[in-house]
Amino acid sequence: MNIFRLTGDLAHLIAIIILLHKIWKSRSCAGISGKSQVLFALVYTTRYLDLVTSYVSIYNTFMKFVFLATSYATIYLIYVKFKATYDHNHDTFRIEFLILPSLALALLINHYFNFLEVLWTFSIYLESVAILPQLFMVSKTGEAESITSHYLFALGSYRALYILNWIYRYATEGHYDLIAIVAGVVQTVLYCDFFYLYITKVLKGKKLQLPA
């Protein structure tokens, strides 16, 4: 554990809390892509199957449990409790175009060819693109509420901080995982356009509005 990974994990946790809090307080999931949330639930489910087979630390077990539980809670809020507020007309990204290539790539490029390992690899590939339905939704409506922007910023920061963690781990332990690194870089690059808008607009008190 180092400061980059810890702050990365905290950014991830904060993102989830921001999202759940926003939906709960406003009693609405307007502007939130249910499809991205379904993909995240799929990511955590396939990655944290090792929760029952291997133990790393109390911290790891606790965080995995929290990410799993909150991802299903988010889906419940969007598709059941506040279903009437779900903006499905703007949430039209075809997620099979992300799931199937991620699965194919995981079958082809992995560290070991076994069930848990392929699912872990699939989760890494899928996570790198899981935000696309949400970004697509923002681009389709041309705007995002500030709170949604804060959520996206925290969520994007998490993998960017993990990249610093990987650099640090390589320098100090010689540890590196090429699959996680390449996917993590792809994931962070997808947020770059959003980061730019966030810093130049949202932080200056303006609404995140895309040029027409």
């Binding site: 990974r5 291997s54 133990y55 990410f67 560290h111 848990l116 872990w120 963690n165 995982d177």
Partner: peptide, 10 residues
Amino acid sequence: SKHLERHDEL
């Protein structure tokens, strides 16, 4: 166990 060695992150 190789799985455990590598995947110690979230």
